[in-house]
Structures are given as structure tokens and as C-alpha cells.
Design a protein around this nucleic acid. Sequence first.
DNA 1: GATAAAAATCGACACCATGTAGACTTTCTG
DNA 2: CAGAAAGTCTACATGGTGTCGATTTTTATC
Lengths: 204, 204
Amino acid sequence: MSGHHPARSRRSAERKGDVRERAILDTCEALLAQKGYDAMTVGDIAQGAGITRGALYFYFGSKHEVVAALVARTVEQLWERSRATAQADEPRRAIAAAMQRTVELWNEHGLVMRTAIDLSLTVPEIGELWDHTADLFITAITAVLERAGIQAGTEPQQASAMARALCWMIERTFYHASQESREKLEEASATCEHIWLTSAGLTT
Amino acid sequence: MSGHHPARSRRSAERKGDVRERAILDTCEALLAQKGYDAMTVGDIAQGAGITRGALYFYFGSKHEVVAALVARTVEQLWERSRATAQADEPRRAIAAAMQRTVELWNEHGLVMRTAIDLSLTVPEIGELWDHTADLFITAITAVLERAGIQAGTEPQQASAMARALCWMIERTFYHASQESREKLEEASATCEHIWLTSAGLTT
DNA sequence: GATAAAAATCGACACCATGTAGACTTTCTG
DNA sequence: CAGAAAGTCTACATGGTGTCGATTTTTATC
């Protein structure tokens, strides 16, 4: 809109391709919601993004790469938010906060997160992304458990192993609940929080 | 070989097709282990079973149907064994027994169970099979929790919801552990058992 | 054990999605 | 404005799925 400013503003740091690339990922996300991964064809994505299949392959080498990039984009947001969250807090409070944050994550990005989980096996790159994400959560949970007095260590009944199991519990429970409704998610969250608290020995 | 017995033994209650069908499922299971679902082609399965693709389609309508039948075959074994297990027992003992049984299940059928989970989304028939299986487990866990004194009901902190979360925890934890090694599975089992016990209020 | 129906098998084909290749057009850059 | 880089297109090659009709084998029956 009416850019009457001097030369410098001409800076097109934003290549046309950057816009297209974003459009592709956006379309991919939308189609994922509409038809699911298998039914979604590369042609569909291209069409949605306003180009042909051939052009799409200029940006991504395969259907897998497209969705991997989508997962990467989403997961990076999660990481940023995780990093931004100070987690030095009293255990009970930390657990409540973590669950609250997780509900938000699944509400906002449930679709892509479910897709990431579903494709972890099929698309190695996505598998790594998701494993890394899980590790972040496991580390965080481990820290809370230890601060709550659970013995540190990797034996079956020590913090590390318990955190892993709790992480998978949350992942799977939210995976299912987020497919149903926000209410189910809230309930699932409450249940997971309760089990986490109990496991941490924080039974009131 | 030299069947000099009377007429009756001639009973071919076993159609040739029954043998083939079994061969197809066996081959499918083997290939699943070798190359995974995506890489495994219908031609591969047919070849392994000693027939051509065309012949395979006489038995099953699609690749999906083949693997769904394989899952069904496996899952029916689980159900039988579940039914055979008397579960009226003191909670602590019941939990230990259940986990023991679950380890055996995953040791024997881990591959097919993982496949079932992976394809639950893609193949509706498999999804139903697995949902039903999960329900059996959830019901069983619920019963144990209630007998251990957890309040019955479906609110977030009551037996039913907790059982669901615990079930998913076990599913996911075993899913990952069974991909690694038997030792990991044992450890995972111990961890899950510990969390289950704690959640049931049976903390020694 | 001959025979007709049913069961099983095959090979060829149509279809569709993926990914590749090369020519062409637009956009940047000096 | 000219050349390079970025972006786009159409056409094609490949490979896997599922269908079809013809054909052979098995099974039941007399």
C-alpha cells in the first residue's frame, strides 16, 4: 500500500518462493484436516497452493518432505514456547502449569501433532522430530519428579523411567481426546494430572 | 501317505483355499517384519504364498484386507487368552499378573500389535478391532482399581478415566519398548506396574 | 472313475499417483 | 537492458493397485 518511502524499502527480503512455500504448507495442513494424509494427493496440495505438481516439486522433493516440513514448522513453535516457559517452581504448581500448557498445545496444533505421531514410522525425518520433542517433555517431567522427591536414576521405578511412561500416557491420552472435543481434552488433562501427582507422591 | 483306512478319513474338511489363506497371512506377517507395511507390495505377499497377484485377490479384496485379517487372527488369540484368565484376585496380585500377561502378549505378538496401532487410522476395520481390544483392557483395569478402593465412575479422577489413561500408558510404553528388546520390555513393565500400583493407592 | 459345478489360478489391462526432465517464463541484479 | 537465477509448466516414465475374462484344478456326486 502506497509505499512513498526512500529506496531502502524496496528490500525484497521476501522471495516470491517464500510465500509459495508457506502457501504449500498451509494448504497441506488444511487438506490434512479435510481428507487425511493418504487421501491427500500431491496434485491437491499444488492446486490448493495455486501451482501445478511440477512446480511443487521445485520446493519439496516429495509428499513426505512437504508434511515433514509442516511438522517441523509446528514443532519449532512448540520448542520456542517450551524454552520460554520458566519451570523452576514448586512441583504441584509446575505440574498444573505443564498440563495447562499441554492442553493449549493440543488445542492449537492437535491435527499436526497427531499427523506427526501417525507418520513417525513412515517418515524417518518426522520420527526424529517427534522423538526429540518427546525427549524435551521427558526431561521436564523427570526434573519435576526429582524435585518432588522421587529418586533420580534410570531404573524402572526411578524418575527417568517413570517420566517416560508418564509422557507416553499423556501423548496417547491427548492423541485420542483431541480427536473428540475440547471438553474431552480437559477431562483427559485432569486425569493425567492426577496420575502424575500421585506418581510424584504428591497425594494430598 | 498309504491311507488304508475306511472311507470316513477322506474327510477333506480343509479346503485347499484354507491352507493358502493361512499361507498368505503368514507371509504377510513375515514381510511386515522384514520390510514394513509400506514397502511390502501385494506382489510380494502373493509370491511368498506361492501364487500370483491375481490369485491373491481371490482371497482378499485389497492389501488392507489382508493385513486386517492378520490383525483379526492375532487379536482373537488375545481375546481367547483374556477370557481364559480368571481375574478375581487380590488387587496387588491381579496387577502383577496382568502385567506379566501383557509382557508375554507383546513378546509374542508385538509386531502385529504395533502394526495394528499404526494402521488404526488408515484401515477402519483395524481401528475397530484395536479399539475393542483396548476396551477389554480398560474394563479389566477399571475393575482392579475399583476393587482397590478407587471410586467408581467416569469423572476425571475416578476409576474409569484413570483406567483409560493407564491403558494408553501401557500401550504406548510397550509399543516403544517392544521395538527395542525383551529387556526393555521387562523394564517398561516394571515401571508401568509401579505407576499402576501407585495410582491404585497401593503404595506399600 | 466320469462329469459337472465350484474353487482357485493366471495373465493382461486399465487406472492413478508419484516423481523426473527439459523447455519456457518471470523476476532479480548489475 | 542482458544474463542469471528462480519459478513454472507440460509431457513422460515408472510402479503399484485393483479388475476381468479365460482357463485350470479341485471337489462332490453318481
